[in-house]
Design a protein around this nucleic acid. Structure first.
Lengths: 188, 188
DNA sequence: AGGAAAACGGCGGACCCCACCGTTTATGAG
DNA sequence: CTCATAAACGGTGGGGTCCGCCGTTTTCCT
């Protein structure tokens, strides 16, 4: 079963990742890499080896959540009224982003982005999975054709970051998103 | 002219603040405090004496911008159609937040917020100044009565933070805000 | 002019990220 | 089964930041 990966390397990778999940959940985006290494029982160099940048680690930590949301998008496709379905999914993204610390950070470009195309793997995955939902809503004319999924995700990420330190982040995030989705009032 | 302030203290305060403005403009919210001290020609302890927390420094740096926006709100009060006027002002807030680095950060609660009432001086100032604009719009029924100014500012701050590292932050921020203000589409 | 009080800033500790580099360990070929 | 090799490991040191302490200097008021 030689897959080109050394067994201990894979073991360490998973140990580190498991610890990182907890550590990020507790300390947020700025969790200490050395602390993660310490708890995982490896040298800090090993952490850096497996995850060259903080961002890489955050992406790995968020990977499962991203997959969950992508699956959910595929489930929802075609069920019910298009705009409602899209909003339902977006609300779940809001919930995940407000609940799972570090997720919002990977949905948005980092300072050191030099990649030419599709700069963001995580966001791209979500966009691909949820694209049908938005297309349907546009087709039905219930969402403006100018709206891009990337914009919606950026908006949600921003809301999550802004509400992170509120007494009840999730509630506040949902509140703000309802506001945005409603366009702050009756007249448009 | 004894105002209880020692002359050298005030001088240092202003030197530090002046340097901090530049430094924050260039390096954003995480500008190095020691670097600021170095450039200002003072010890790092002196910086901490005048600005006990990073946040305090950021608030001082943003103070003028906050005042400008507050003045602008008072200017705009009562001119033109209420919702348009409010949106005009909010757009200016978006512009400032996207342009002046560090402003968005002070419009949102920090991690260590234990204050009982009106936790945020900067946001509170803006809210007070712009409150009439929102009240007018609510009175005319052009904005939902449930909308709070604090929510609008938090939303804008989130947008600014999310778009900070885009190729053209200001453009992207305005784009997202237009989206939110329009409620992402024709149907509400 | 002189003394009290306030402000200053250097120093050391704790932490963090990062790169180097000698050592250990898994692996697959013989 | 042995063993050479390449991969993975982790300790260590350098550079940086934030923070608190404390002896020294400066300012101001009498």
């Amino acid at each position: 079963m030689s897959d080109g990966q050394r067994a201990d390397a894979r073991r360490n990778y998973e140990r580190i990742l498991a610890v990182a999940v907890d550590e990020v959940a507790e300390h947020g985006v700025n969790a200490s890499l050395e602390q993660i290494a310490r708890v995982a029982g490896v040298g800090s160099a090993t952490v850096r080896r497996h995850f060259p940048s903080r961002r890489a680690l955050l992406e790995a930590v968020s990977h499962k959540r991203i997959e969950d949301l992508s699956d959910r998008a595929r489930e929802l496709a075609g069920t019910g009224e298009s705009r409602s379905v899209l909003l339902e999914w977006l609300n779940e993204v809001v919930d995940y982003s407000a609940t799972a610390r570090g997720l919002a950070a990977v949905l948005v470009p980092d300072s050191a982005e030099v990649e030419p195309a599709h700069v963001n793997g995580c966001a791209a995955t979500l966009e691909d999975a949820a694209s049908p939902l938005l297309q349907n809503a546009k087709r039905d004319g219930t969402v403006s054709s100018e709206v891009m999924l990337a914009d919606l995700l950026a908006l949600i990420a921003g809301i999550a970051m802004a509400t992170e330190h509120y007494p009840d982040p999730a509630a506040q995030a949902h509140h703000l998103f309802r506001l945005a989705a409603a366009g702050l009032g009756p007249q448009h």
